[in-house]
Nucleic acid binder design. Structure first.
Length: 288
DNA sequence: CAAGCGTGGGA
DNA sequence: TTCCCAAGCTT
């Protein structure tokens, strides 16, 4: 499958977006912050928050010196705000255990809060030029189509999938890192989940899914998250009140944000349990 | 391993 | 409008 390398690497060289966390001047910390923010959040929404984050906290130690609530507030509306807590906790661990420098070793990255297999491989590859299999949703979809000939990959990563990704990973470290980001970019811009632009694809003539006539997805139904009325929506409402207010707020403000008493009380308790909200006085709450 | 966790934009 | 989805992690 190494005949995929040249066309995809050349395509990336010509079509890659210029993003602040790419480029030769991007620090490992900048890459790490971007990877946290990009977990389930689109690039366009990450860009302004990432820029302000790096301006305010140019190194892990700068973030670690702040209360966790400052990270939650600066996270804004990126979603999944526990990522902000984990990024803060990871920065603290980097200061305490790694001399303030983002580790380059996969195992050390993987041990940090909020860093799973994908993020550890991505930081090791993109910030430090190490050779790792980087399997995100884009890479999985590209390989599913080009190599396996199906529209979408299985719900969770399989052993076979990981073996295929390792087989096609270039041998040289720097090339492997560029390859991974190139395949990701191809998935993000061309081989998209809905409406792939096969006419712009550098490997369309080698694509198993395309040569099979774009057979429809035949796997288990992909689950859709419900939203209206869920705890996630309730928690988002409550946290938004605190985020958009300077200083503590009275409980009446939170009561006004969600009408159903039982759910609101449960969600507030879970936010406190998660460390996203602090109970600072009788009927008074604030960011931690 | 399935479920839970935010948010907003595009089709 | 409704549905789908966007560089996952944790439990």
């Amino acid at each position: 499958m190494s005949e995929l390398h040249e066309p995809i690497l050349r395509w990336y060289d010509e079509h890659a977006r210029e993003l602040p966390w790419r480029g030769p001047d991007a620090s490992p910390w900048s890459v790490m912050v971007s990877e946290f923010m990009l977990q389930q959040t689109p690039v366009s929404r990450v860009l302004p928050v990432h820029q302000e984050w790096l301006r305010r906290w140019p190194a892990p130690a700068d973030l670690a010196a702040e209360p966790t609530g400052e990270a939650v507030r600066a996270w804004g509306r990126l979603g999944y705000p526990r990522r902000a807590l984990r990024l803060h906790a990871a920065a603290t661990a980097i200061v305490e255990q790694h001399g303030g420098e983002v580790p380059a070793a996969y195992d050390e990255l993987r041990a940090l809060p909020g860093i799973g297999d994908y993020t550890a491989a991505a930081i090791a590859s993109f910030a430090h030029g190490r050779r790792h299999v980087v399997l995100d949703t884009n890479v999985r979809r590209v390989f599913a189509r080009v190599i396996q000939g199906v529209e979408f990959p299985s719900p969770s990563v399989t052993k076979a999938e990981r073996e295929v990704a390792l087989e096609v990973l270039p041998d040289e470290d720097a090339t492997a890192a560029t390859w991974s980001v190139a395949v990701m970019e191809l998935g993000a811009l061309v081989c998209t989940a809905a409406g792939p632009r096969c006419h712009d694809c550098p490997v369309a003539d080698r694509c198993a899914w395309r040569s099979a006539g774009h057979p429809a997805y035949d796997g288990p139904p992909r689950k859709v998250q419900t939203w209206a009325g869920t705890d996630r929506q309730c928690r988002g409402r409550l946290l938004a009140v605190l985020r958009d207010t300077d200083g503590p707020v009275h409980r009446s403000r939170l009561d006004a944000a969600w009408s159903e008493d039982g759910q609101r009380i449960r969600c507030l308790a879970s936010l406190i349990e998660d460390g996203l909200v602090a109970h600072v006085g009788p009927d008074t709450y604030a960011l931690p």
